[in-house]
């Protein structure tokens, strides 16, 4: 490992950005939350369980979860066309896969839980922030869950592993360039989501997984605190 690697914002290698979570931000929803990681802000709202429409998609054996990830057109420097695209469809599905293993949906046959995620402001790590917000919103909605899900992006900049990449770091172009590894885990360390873009060796990727576990524990504590605060207020 390189002796000295300084991050653009001066953070430690394992240091998260300033992180904030708040539950109950959307009164109309059955559950809602905001999750902020530095300059990345995600809102999530949960509606349901409710009867699945269209009816032919109902499953008498279990309830289902549907996720919609959406970026606001003004959330990035170059405006993006509003509406769904291939990227957002993939992230929606990834989010569903990340959350589904902890949900006890078998309690809601023929029903659906809708999760809507909106990215208000983006500075990398939007899928992770979205998953963190969505997990909070599901807990806030009282959906029975076996565990919490926390998500973090591990980065490899040149040869060094770091936690919680910013956009500036994602665009790092020196040495071996940037590698982005968004990972989601339950608090007991089960991996529910794993993606990677870049270049990394088999041994170092194992190190990245261990780093993710540590970082997800920190996120988990922040989520727990936000949920407890929401009860105090009510």
């Amino acid at each position: 490992m390189t002796a000295k690697f300084t991050r653009p914002d001066g953070r430690g290698l394992k240091e998260l950005r300033s992180t904030e979570a708040k539950v109950g931000i959307i009164p109309n929803a059955d559950g809602s939350a905001m999750f902020r990681s530095g300059d990345t802000i995600a809102y999530a709202a949960v509606y349901g369980p409710k009867k699945m429409h269209p009816q032919h998609q109902q499953d008498p054996a279990t309830g289902q979860i549907r996720c919609t990830y959406n970026m606001n057109s003004f959330s990035v420097s170059d405006r993006i066309k509003p509406g769904i695209n291939r990227r957002s469809m993939e992230i929606s599905e990834i989010t569903k896969w990340a959350l589904e293993p902890v949900l006890m949906l078998e309690k809601f046959p023929n029903q659906v839980v809708d999760v809507f995620i909106n990215i208000i402001q983006a500075d990398a790590g939007t899928r992770c922030a979205g998953i963190n917000a969505a997990a909070l919103a599901l807990a806030h909605a009282g959906i029975p869950m076996k565990d919490m899900v926390s998500s973090i992006s591990i980065g490899k900049l040149d040869k060094t592993l770091v936690v919680d990449l910013t956009k500036e770091e994602e665009d790092y172009h020196e040495g071996e360039g940037p590698t982005d590894i968004p990972i989601s885990m339950t608090s007991s360390g089960k991996i529910t989501h794993f993606q990677l873009d870049g270049k990394i060796g088999v041994e170092q990727i194992k190190e990245a997984i261990d780093m993710a576990k540590e970082a997800c524990q920190k996120i988990y504590e922040i989520q727990k605190k936000a949920l407890k605060e929401s009860i105090k207020e009510e």
């Binding site: 896969w97 339950t186 991996i191 529910t192 794993f194 990677l196 873009d197 270049k199 576990k213």
Partner: peptide, 16 residues
């Protein structure tokens, strides 16, 4: 031995 992309698909978790 150099990994350039990973995608975990579907809803079942894996241990570390």
């Amino acid at each position: 031995g150099i990994i350039s992309s990973v995608q975990k698909s579907n809803s079942e978790s894996l241990s570390i």
